[in-house]
Design a protein around this nucleic acid. Sequence first.
DNA 1: GTCTATACCGGGATAGAC
DNA 2: GTCTATCCCGGTATAGAC
Lengths: 197, 197
Amino acid sequence: MGTEEKILTTARFIFHRSGFHGARMQEIADKAGINKALLHYYFRSKDKLFHEIIKNDLSGLIANNLNYLEGDVPFEKKLKTFIANYIQNLIENPHLPAFVIHEINHNTERLVEIFKSSAKTLPSKFIEQIKKEIKLGNIKKIKPEHILMNIISLSVFPFMAKPIFSTMLDLDDKAYTKIMIERKHIVFESILNGIRQ
Amino acid sequence: MGTEEKILTTARFIFHRSGFHGARMQEIADKAGINKALLHYYFRSKDKLFHEIIKNDLSGLIANNLNYLEGDVPFEKKLKTFIANYIQNLIENPHLPAFVIHEINHNTERLVEIFKSSAKTLPSKFIEQIKKEIKLGNIKKIKPEHILMNIISLSVFPFMAKPIFSTMLDLDDKAYTKIMIERKHIVFESILNGIRQ
DNA sequence: GTCTATACCGGGATAGAC
DNA sequence: GTCTATCCCGGTATAGAC
């Protein structure tokens, strides 16, 4: 693995774990097996390095997950596939949501710009698809906005709140992961039952 | 308002907005209308000041919300009341969840201890109550853990993800608040429809 | 490209006068 | 209790040798 790639991988890990202000260039250098000077040689500043990471995270979020909602797939199948894929992504990147949420709440204007610029289309087609399902009488009359919020909330939040939920429910790491895997199915069923006529 | 109280109010605001590492003692002093030295006179260190704030937030979360789940109230009424009250609290403290989640993911051991020590009982009675409802055939056979996660996820996450959702759904501040108010009802209905037989 | 050494500054903390 | 002045460390960034 080349030096640049090694830096990016390490920096992503540290930023995800500690946030921008909590992250230390020294720790990134150490974990990447180089020294601080080399970090600046490759990325000029902490800010630019951070920018690389979060730009990638935001566009990945959109490319790998949200964009799928805009595709031409029947509603129920789309719902099922989206949730399963999204939760699988989160199992592989459990720190990502808390990181993105924290950072976007702090530097909102700047990061929202990056977010927008990665999105070819925001999920307007999915919203339309929900409206159509309502007209057809297949699902209850609920604002599509709420349905979208529900899908994402149920999928994402338990990853962010792991320390709290595992304390409240007395679950160790292994048990927690098992619960997260179950949620691929549970979230789909909960959403579907919640909106079916 | 006395100096100490003034400091706490200001510090809470700044910590909520910026997190521990992002917060600046200088800004807290400025906004509180005093100088840095006085901050240290009252609270010794940034760490101790932070501790005051988050301890209060965590115990408030438990006292004002989670404890209610342990009370002796019929299931459906409890669900409705809890969600409405919880979301109302979040409307009044929209930055609180992102702050708590961020901090507890970083200093997990320490903050989980504070969390535990504020909780007389974790929601074991509520879990039992759900199990009873399942046995009675009133609700579907789903692990109570998932139901609890669903309730909290649907209530909390949209507050944390405001910058993302408002971008995706093209909602301004006023429209967003309106949606949050609607959710007192929507979340209750979604949960109930999702678990009813 | 990679290193060591160092400059530079921001920010938490303290001393001491009032 | 409140202030001004200052210390001092940690952390980003740069200079310059190899």
